[in-house]
Design a protein around this nucleic acid. Structure first.
Lengths: 350, 350
DNA sequence: GTGAAAGCGCTAACAC
DNA sequence: GTGTTAGCGCTTTCAC
């Protein structure tokens, strides 16, 4: 049947985009109906071995690539998971996204990524576009979002997972840990080392509200513990090695008695290590330092860094597990809130 | 007309997924046709102000979110750009992806992300799924891909951009720099510092073939220059601070005369700095060190690190520029190959 | 400027 | 097990 039945549709509306090979082409070549091809693609065992073989041959021969957009439309849900993080340049989130992605990809899900740069409005815009893709699930960072973001998400009817924070009221599922507890652990550790004049050095805490929570937990523990003095100092810029040096100098100036420092992350801690070396301040003799993150360098620097590991990797894995089970089961697998906890790793800097 | 014509289709096939608000709903409420709503959404100026106002009100009132999946299907191209990198945990690529994403998002494009873990087969699988989304463009890392990947991409008919490498034969557009030149620059710099016994210390070079290219350029320059001896040492694992320490020890063992080191990246260089401090080897007096990457810490470590900056950020921006102009113009903006070059930043480690 | 109509390529009942 | 049939929600001619 290579002649047209009616002559109409003879001339394509427009030179066809690219004469994409469709499922119908495969079906024709394999001498089956399109729906059989579709079925084969989704459940190979549901079609007869003979038909399956023909279809496989046809697919291979034509170089057919299924159109997931069409599939997503027909199925009313795309095999995409939208992930929104503050920044992927941040090693913490990169680790989580990486783990999440690895797990999801292996189950045939794609990852649509967005970053907010710690801006709630940007987050809202991203959520809006994310929803436009009818994603299978959506992953956000933190529990605090704009009113409209929450509204959109609640109305969306798709699984939502919030990560890297616990303690508030999640929209749906949550995987993370309690940041105030991290700050408290740092303070308690320093106190246990007989440090009495403490400081929490953080960066960008006006925006990074999880870092601010760690600072609060730190202060709380100081208040309850035997600290003689304590303070929280914020660097408005990014949390870098350089910020660490700046913060150390400011804190030393403010309190020359300083003998214990908790940092909002390991980059800052590393900056402090270097700056102390420059200033001739002995670590941990004169000052004990505790970081946060347990980054790649933390075990290998000099002195090696005592730090608190949040396990971004585990967060990603658990998040993926929850999402997958939700997608598969439709039924929520119960109080889907997972505390991944944190671990203080004692090394030489304290 | 709220009665059905035939009674059939009375009961929805299934309880409707979520009674999604569609363009038709908006149209009905605004008392215009769906196509007018569609037009308004894409070119607000093309509809009358009155209609526009009504439509805007309806959208707002109903909380309508366009379905990009349906749009993508109808338009035969989705507003998605697929980006495939070896790993986002690598600061280099994270920087590029971040820049790329920022630029693309501001133009209304989404980013679909994949990572290969330096595996060509995985890359092929990712390209395949990426194509399933009929993306507006696809971004790959490097110029070397499997036969099938190249075939798929050439048949795909969509803009392809390869980044982070130049010198080969790009499929379409390319933004990057010449890795051998980077290795050569490092060697030349060390030679100019009267270093004669050199080594290139790299990690994962069996997979990271761009690092291998840097090593080759390094050797070539040693051969042509006045080097007395040189070698290339590879650590099979990831390029971490720890790998740096291991590599330093191996190279020192192999050649105690060693007085100049080029690293495949700054993490390794940092590891060398720390290990030298441990061993009591003076930098740069006994050994000069050159890194690659100019990462966050490179200017602030002790001693500050002489390094070569490739500018992942610039690569991302240029890539975005090329993609956007291609998408807008359809016509290739000609020799779409951009060399972002590299800069040697001399600091204290050499 | 606006609307009617015809798909985009696929999935999912349902009947055979 | 396989084919038929309706859409999924939108874009895009094309006529008015």
């Amino acid at each position: 049947m290579d002649t047209d039945d009616l002559g109409k549709d003879r001339v394509p509306r427009k030179r066809r985009k690219m004469q994409r090979i469709t499922m119908a082409d495969v079906a024709k070549l394999a001498k089956v109906s399109p729906s059989t091809v579709s079925l084969y693609l989704r459940k190979p065992d549901a079609v007869s071995p003979a038909a399956g073989r023909e279809i496989a041959r046809a697919i291979d021969h034509l170089g057919y690539v299924p159109n997931l957009v069409a599939g997503g439309l027909a199925a009313a849900s795309s095999r995409v998971v939208s992930i929104i993080v503050p920044s992927i340049r941040n090693a913490f989130f990169a680790e989580t996204v990486s783990a999440l992605q690895a797990e999801l990809t292996s189950e045939g899900l794609q990852v649509l990524l967005g970053h907010t740069e710690y801006d709630k409005e940007q987050e809202e815009a991203l959520v809006r576009t994310a929803l436009s893709w009818a994603p299978a699930a959506i992953v956000l960072t933190g529990l605090s979002h704009s009113r409209d973001t929450r509204k959109l998400l609640k109305a969306g009817g798709i699984p939502v997972l919030e990560m890297w924070e616990l303690g508030g009221d999640p929209l749906d599922m949550a995987v993370g840990f309690l940041h105030p507890r991290v700050g408290a652990s740092a303070a308690e550790h320093l106190l246990s080392k007989r440090r009495r004049n403490l400081a929490f050095l953080g960066a960008r805490m006006q925006e990074d509200h999880r870092a601010a929570q760690r600072a609060e937990g730190f202060e709380e523990a100081c208040r309850k513990g035997q600290a003689a003095s304590w303070s929280v100092i914020n660097h408005p810029g990014a949390a870098t090695v350089e910020a660490g040096a700046i913060l150390l100098n400011r804190s030393l100036q403010q309190n020359p008695q300083l003998d214990g420092i908790a940092c909002s992350n390991d980059w800052i801690a590393l900056g402090i290590l270097f700056e102390c070396q420059r200033l001739g301040v002995a670590i941990p003799d004169a000052i004990s330092v505790v970081g946060f993150g347990d980054l790649d360098f933390s075990a290998s620097c000099i002195p090696s860094l005592t730090t608190i590991r949040p396990s971004g990797d585990l967060i990603g894995k658990e998040a993926a597990r929850l999402i997958l089970s939700r997608i598969r089961a439709a039924a929520p697998p119960l109080p889907a809130i997972i505390d991944t906890g944190h671990v203080l790793i004692e090394r030489c800097s304290s």
